[in-house]
Computed example of a mutant assay.
Amino acid sequence: MKRRDFFKTALMSVSTFVAAREAFAAACKVGAAPAGKKVAKNKSRLDYVLNAADAKGNKKYKAGSTCANCKWYKKAKETGGYAPCPMMANKYVSACGWCKSWKKA
């Protein structure tokens, strides 16, 4: 592989990654909380935030981790982008949210 081809491939890979990350960030919008449901408060003892992008300052946060891809998020009971979480006393959390109890599903 020529040096020029290597750099073209590397640049295309980086730009694809950046575009995919921006598309995910744009796709994850925090909507209105479901009416009549107990909703977790922002900044609980588990450092819960409504939008995972706000958790970047937390040392346990890993890029791409959200409540939607967490083991504890009860997707079967999801209502309008919110679902109950046993780590938050079964209060509803945002699919775009994050807390330090996050575990890969």
Rank of each mutant, 00 (worst) to 15 (best):
L50W: 12
A76Q: 12
A23E: 06
G81N: 07
C67Q: 00
A26G: 08
K37V: 04
K29Q: 15
M88T: 10
M88W: 07
G64I: 00
R45T: 13
D54R: 02
A52F: 09
G57S: 03
K2H: 13
A53R: 04
N58A: 08
S101E: 15
K91D: 09
S44F: 02
P84Q: 00
P84L: 03
L46I: 00
K75A: 12
K59D: 13
A55Y: 01
A25G: 05
A33M: 00
C70P: 03
W102S: 03
N69S: 02
C70I: 03
K91H: 05
K2T: 15
K43F: 14
S65K: 07
A27D: 14
K37F: 05
N42K: 13
A83P: 04
K56G: 09
S15P: 07
G80C: 03
K29Y: 07
W98Y: 03
V30D: 07
S15N: 05
V93F: 02
V49P: 04
Y61C: 00
W98E: 04
C28R: 14
C28T: 11
F7C: 08
A89T: 10
G36L: 06
F24I: 14
T66M: 06
G64K: 02
M88A: 10
V30N: 06
E78V: 03
A25N: 11
K103S: 14
F6A: 11
A63M: 14
M1L: 13
K43N: 15
K103F: 12
A10R: 06
T79G: 08
A52Y: 03
G81D: 05
F17P: 02
P86A: 11
E22M: 15
K2E: 14
G31L: 01
A55G: 06
A32M: 14
Y92E: 00
A52G: 00
D54C: 04
K37Y: 09
L50C: 04
K75M: 09
V30I: 01
W102M: 07
C67E: 04
N90F: 11
K77C: 03
A23V: 05
A68G: 02
S13N: 12
K37C: 01
A10L: 08
N69H: 04
A23P: 07
A105M: 08
K59F: 02
G31T: 01
S44L: 06
A89N: 13
